[in-house]
Amino acid sequence: MTDIHEIMHNDNKSDLGNYRGSILMRFPKIFVLLAIGLFVFSLTQDCYYTNKYFQSGLDGWELLLIGWLGIFYGYFTWLANPVILISWIFAVTRQFRIGLIVATGSMLIMLSFLFHKSIVINEAPTYSKIFGYGLGYWLWIVSAGFSIIANLCRVMRGLN
């Protein structure tokens, strides 16, 4: 394996280009891993607040388990979870163009939650006003952003 110092001082500049190229080839993998890590970390954080004192709301893992029930009340944001999972699968299987489209769709679904002013808080159904968004929500969105970047890196290089 060639040492970076040898490459820098070598008259053959193509070695330096190859080294940079190999680093750029790893970016998508790094961003997919970051996206998955942020998604998992978002599950441990509050996602939104339903009182004006911003006391603890629901953690991401709770929303991941029961959020699908919101579909029956017109809240489709939970569907971003399986969509982001599909984008990771496309990124890992090197289908970057499809992965980019799916990751972008996932982010748009996630952002649609910002248009909701209230949320169902029990099965009655009782609605409560959304007063704010927790760190978990924003990390969830950033994880989709990293998925977009991972796929975009490869698409921009013309690899798929």
Rank of each mutant, 00 (worst) to 15 (best):
I23C: 00
V142T: 13
G158L: 10
W138C: 03
A144S: 14
W68S: 08
L63K: 05
L64W: 08
A144F: 00
A150I: 09
S112I: 07
I101N: 01
W78K: 10
V102T: 08
I23W: 11
Y48L: 12
G70I: 06
D59M: 11
D15F: 14
Q95W: 09
T77C: 07
D11S: 10
V102Q: 01
F72Q: 10
T104E: 00
T44K: 07
H5E: 15
I4F: 12
K52M: 09
S147L: 13
G37C: 09
L64Y: 13
H5T: 15
L111W: 03
Y48N: 07
L43Q: 13
Y48M: 10
G132L: 03
I30S: 08
I89D: 00
A91Q: 09
I149M: 13
T126N: 11
R94M: 08
I66F: 15
D46Q: 04
K52A: 14
G136H: 05
A144P: 03
L58M: 13
V155E: 04
I84Q: 12
V120E: 06
I66H: 09
H5C: 11
M8F: 14
I30H: 02
G158R: 12
Q45I: 02
S143F: 05
A103T: 02
H5N: 15
I4K: 14
L24N: 12
G74M: 04
I7F: 07
K13H: 10
S87N: 09
S118I: 01
R94T: 06
T126H: 08
A80D: 07
G70P: 05
L135Q: 10
